[in-house]
């Protein structure tokens, strides 16, 4: 592979809780502008790793840099360089669409002027102008998800972390959501995404699969299928993760 700019570098990363090792010597790089799938069974250690990469938790040992910033000493710089969205927590239901945009953009440190411009752009792009004053809880789930993603990248972060962003949404909305991901990646935003939908693993440029705190495999979807002699990513996942599931 030709030389590419790396945006996340993880080296010998270990995180222990007491005598339990949640992340056991992780080593990987994520390239600028790529869609990086971060898969693993429940309890494999994904959330622990994501918290470290977002600057919310310190590793026990090892190194990691996010957008050039160190996870031990430059947590605030990391937080300014990333966006985050999950299915469980995305928007405030009792605030309106514009209030949510203003709130998050403010937290990300954008100026009032920029927020105003960005709000108009965002509403136009999502065709939400007529719903600008509606409460989030009155919006259909699919719209909420799309809005949540747009807000997660409202401050043009270098990296956006998406933690199971498409859980529970209908199949058409799920695909529209992936179109948004592609667009963001095409504009140079690096996308770090977890999912339980194995067809979505196929949409990633590269996929890592965590098993019992370790990265058991990392390659393009095509490469993984060849290595594991599998027809689909679902098969790859089941071959790798089955052994670990009852522990």
């Amino acid at each position: 592979m030709s030389e590419r700019e790396t945006i996340i570098t993880v080296s010998h990363l270990v995180k222990k809780f007491g005598d339990f090792t949640a992340n056991d010597d992780l080593n990987f790089e994520v390239y600028k502008g790529e869609i990086f799938g971060f898969l693993g069974a429940n309890g494999a250690g994904k959330t622990t790793a994501i918290k470290i990469l977002c600057g919310l938790s310190k590793p026990t040992s090892g190194n990691a840099t996010i957008a050039g910033f160190d996870v031990y000493t430059q947590k605030d710089d990391i937080k300014n360089s990333i966006g985050y969205m999950s299915q469980k927590f995305s928007l405030y239901e009792d605030l309106t669409v514009t209030e949510n945009i203003r709130f998050f953009a403010g937290i990300y440190g954008m100026t009032r002027k920029d927020i105003k411009i960005k709000t108009q752009q965002l509403l136009a792009k999502l065709e939400l102008e007529d719903s600008a004053k509606k409460l989030i809880k009155d919006l259909p789930l699919g719209w909420r998800q799309k809005l949540a993603f747009s807000i997660a990248i409202v401050h043009s972060p270098k990296i956006v972390f998406l933690d199971e962003p498409t859980g529970g949404v209908d199949p058409i909305t799920r695909r529209q959501f992936w179109n948004q991901i592609y667009e963001a990646a095409a504009e140079g935003v690096t996308v770090f995404v977890t999912t339980h939908y194995m067809d979505e693993a196929e949409y990633c440029d590269r996929v890592s699969i965590m098993v019992d705190g370790k990265i058991a495999a990392l390659d393009t979807p095509q490469g993984l299928k060849q290595t594991f002699e599998a027809e689909s990513m679902n098969e790859v996942f089941i071959k790798l993760a089955r052994v670990a599931v009852n522990n």
Partner: peptide, 11 residues
Amino acid sequence: TTGVDAVSRKE
């Protein structure tokens, strides 16, 4: 099976 990984779902 919502939010459950592919292996646990199969089981």
